[in-house]
Design a protein around this nucleic acid. Structure first.
Lengths: 413, 413
DNA sequence: ATTAATTAATAAAATATTTTAGTAAAAGGC
DNA sequence: GCCTTTTACTAAAATATTTTATTAATTAAT
């Protein structure tokens, strides 16, 4: 069967339709559960499914055979594990569907494509793009996506869904973006769907990164995880019971704007005293420039004016053992650590993953954070919380976007 | 049938046993679902159940009849709603099982008993008891519980389970209490089970109160709720997606001990700068005494030495329009409000319920809290968050304990 | 290498569940 | 007050699912 994705989508729509008599509806819901199990745990055997779903072997066999006939599922040969007759293992047909992930950074876009079996099919990194809150910037974005699809080996109609990350405030349930591209009556997700022809889910960048680390990075197999996106601003993605937590209107996790300091620095958000005003990449950049202006030495300043110094330069300087940069990152780390201690007391998570530009300084920021946590959070609570650096780094966003699109479609519960 | 609880428990154990052939197992699990639906939404009809569970009417009819034969369910007559032949409504048999709730306060205990249908069967409030971390205090507690059962009209063997609240750190999954009664190898819940003969679930007091407000108080029908227990200390109960959130090891919600102030006041927990050090009943009491000592006037001091002033006196003074008390509670409210703004930014809840002793001052504490929230939390985030006063007040704990015991047994998912 | 033990797969028999069709009960319009 | 419409309930027929029994495939032990 050549156009299996068409089959897949027709099949899926069919499963979705609830206007069936009881038994067809039941079979469909069992089929969805089977797909969900296959999607979650890779390849499984018929006895496995039978036990897990408490449905007899012949029944499961019949349904799996139907899924095979629809080319959604395939027999992948015999299991290798011990004693007794070896069962056939079944899995999803990888190329019967693809999922696109689009991660929009400050000055570039990363795009990725995964298949039904979570394999990366193709990527394109660092596509130049400037995100501004204007219509032409949105148009350009759509063109970049369309070009990527046109250039990829996968036919466009095999792409089942797309996940797209934006910074700022996003309600991923309704599909509205409030900080960028809020031009139309319709939600941004609907606009993108119409422009690209692909079912679209939008998500806040930090949340998508959190999801990426949860599915394929540092937070695999954990259930309650906080992901901190330490960049110019501070974002947070919250995973509770293995699912992204959104709060009432999708804005949970505004860690950067908790009233944490008694200072007079006006934050991006308009308030003063936000955590971000003293503990963020932006704060670090300001601090660094001030220090340089007041005469401190650094390897950076050899060929750069203070006002041209970017966060990336400072991060690089830390890696190059620049003393000023190291001192300042430690200062930021100490303050962040006190904030993280607050998070630990409130969420008692099993893991906190540090990502974003600042996390690239690894031990330089990790140690002051850890010592602040010990100082400021309850011992009984923090002993169970691990602190880890991001594993996916700058790929966390794309990976998260791909998987969000996939899981929204496949693992809908 | 006289001893229906015995039947209920035998029946329940039977449902639990997983060593059955497929079909009996399936029927049992559907029966459990039926009980869970009845328990959740009161009385329902057979067509309702059929639609909800996607199981044919004759099958549901057969299972409901079995449940009736077991006297777990009863036919409660015809529905009153419109058009067409009126269906029979079925519900749980109220007195086939009871659930005990024990709420341990600083100097007294409240005990309550509800039946399967959530009706309050009996209560006993303000039983004198002093909670100390000693064996004889635990023994006394067991005696009080046994006496309550002996004196109630309900035979002890009809009590299916008991919920018990304690302040301090509790892991309700394992049943261990760390702050009180941590004498034995076994979890406290097991000790209590052996001492009283009743299946016991222990819970942190603030969490139980949160659950009470969620099931039967100010937070009915909400899904993401924070409950603040504003007393000598500050406790928090978190409800996410309609369920109590515990965190990795059951300590989530340590709001009172977030590092919030840059002061030198040593907290109960040993750290300094905790929110509790300046924004709690304990802080209020200290402040009040200091003010009195330094010459401020108050209606309280007429017949009391400064060191004898208790939190309850100050709360009463606020209600009696005492200016000093009102000023100080507003000061506490402002600081608490800033802390709550942090919670709103992090959790984006739909509702925050204020309970505990301080909440009894109602508007006097509510207004400064609300104005601090507006000042310190992001507008886009806080517009969706309602702030309400507790509806159950000092009953929140007992009610929560009863319902927790009930729901742990009945709505196990 | 043959046999015993273990687990998978399948066919047929036994059982269960859903459908269908018909009856019952209620409300509202004429 | 009768007829139409709507929904509930029930019995029997039709269909589906599980059980049981049998065969197949594999490992480990003799």
């Amino acid at each position: 069967m050549t156009d299996s994705i068409l089959v897949f989508m027709i099949f899926w729509d069919d499963l979705e339709s609830e206007s069936k008599p009881g038994i067809a509806l039941k079979n469909n819901s069992i089929k969805k559960e089977i797909i969900s199990i296959l999607s979650l745990s890779g390849n499984v055997t018929i006895p496995d499914l039978s036990k897990k779903l408490v449905i007899s072997v012949p029944k499961i066999t019949a349904l799996v055979n139907e899924l095979i006939a629809d080319s959604i599922v395939s027999d992948y040969g015999k299991s290798t594990v011990a004693s007794g007759r070896k069962p056939s293992v079944y899995g999803l047909v990888a190329d019967s569907g693809f999922f696109l992930g689009v991660d929009i950074k400050h000055s570039h876009i990363n795009i990725g494509l995964i298949d039904l079996c979570k394999n990366l099919a193709s990527t394109s990194k660092h596509i130049p793009y400037t995100l501004t809150n204007e219509r032409h910037s949105l148009d350009e974005l759509c063109n970049i996506i369309k070009t990527f699809i046109a250039n990829s080996a996968i036919p466009g109609d095999k792409i089942v869904a797309m996940g797209l990350n934006l910074s700022g405030r996003i309600n991923s349930t309704t599909g509205y973006s409030y900080s960028f591209f809020h031009f139309n009556e319709d939600p941004l997700s609907v606009y993108l769907e119409q422009a690209t022809g692909i079912k679209t889910f939008i998500e806040n960048d930090s949340r998508a990164m959190a999801y990426g680390e949860y599915i394929a990075g540092a937070a695999k197999n954990e259930k309650n995880v906080l992901f901190l996106n330490l960049d110019y601003g501070i974002g947070m993605g919250i995973i509770i019971n293995g699912q992204l937590y959104y709060g009432k209107s999708g804005f949970a996790g505004e860690f950067g704007h908790i009233p944490f300091f008694d200072n007079e620095i006006i934050c991006q958000c308009g308030k003063k005293g936000c955590l971000e005003t003293e503990a963020s990449g932006r704060a670090l950049t300001h601090l660094f420039r001030e220090k340089i202006k007041s005469g401190y030495a650094s390897i950076i300043t050899k060929d750069m004016a203070p006002e041209d110094i970017k966060l990336s330069h400072i991060i690089q300087a830390v890696k190059d053992d620049d003393v000023l940069a190291i001192d300042l990152i430690a200062e930021i780390g100490e303050k962040l650590g006190k904030g993280i201690a607050t998070l630990i007391n409130l969420y008692n998570p099993e893991l906190i993953v540090l990502g974003g530009a600042l996390a690239e300084t690894s031990e330089y920021i990790l140690l002051p954070i850890k010592s602040a946590i010990n100082k400021y959070s309850l011992n009984l609570v923090n002993t169970d919380t691990q602190i880890k650096l991001s594993q996916l780094n700058e790929n966390a966003g794309v990976v998260g976007a791909c998987f969000l699109a996939r899981d929204r479609v496949l693992e809908a519960r």
